[in-house]
Amino acid sequence: MADTLDFELVSPAKLLVSEPVSMVVVPGTEGNFGALPQHAPMLSTVRPGVIDVYKNGQVAKRIFVAGGFAEVTETRCTVLAEEAHDLSTLTRESVDARIQAAKDALQEADSASEKAAATSKLKVAEAMLAAIA
């Protein structure tokens, strides 16, 4: 039995991570789930949150994703993120600026679709804040 699974994290902009890992914890819409090798195949939507990448029983990487999809099979775990940042690259100021921008957008939104877009932006930014806090 293989003791690693291939973890891939891609955003529309680029392929961020592609490496064998021992476990990943993905923030699914219906709760976090951990994916180990030999996991039953599943597809899930991902909510804004932090992906923990485990290697040799330790957290090797923490990556913030702003929602997307995750596909888990027995040998690999693929996360399609709309946006992804390594947690160490996020700073308090940039996140605060994002929240402010989202709040401004919400204030100025006049159509329902604009409002929905701004609300989801704000949610992402707040999740970001929670992630670095």
């Binding site: 891609v10 955003s11 693929t78």
Partner: peptide, 13 residues
């Protein structure tokens, strides 16, 4: 080139 992996994987999924 950076955008290709995402499109490919999305199509596979």
């Amino acid at each position: 080139e950076a955008g290709r992996p995402y499109a490919v994987r999305m199509e596979r999924m």
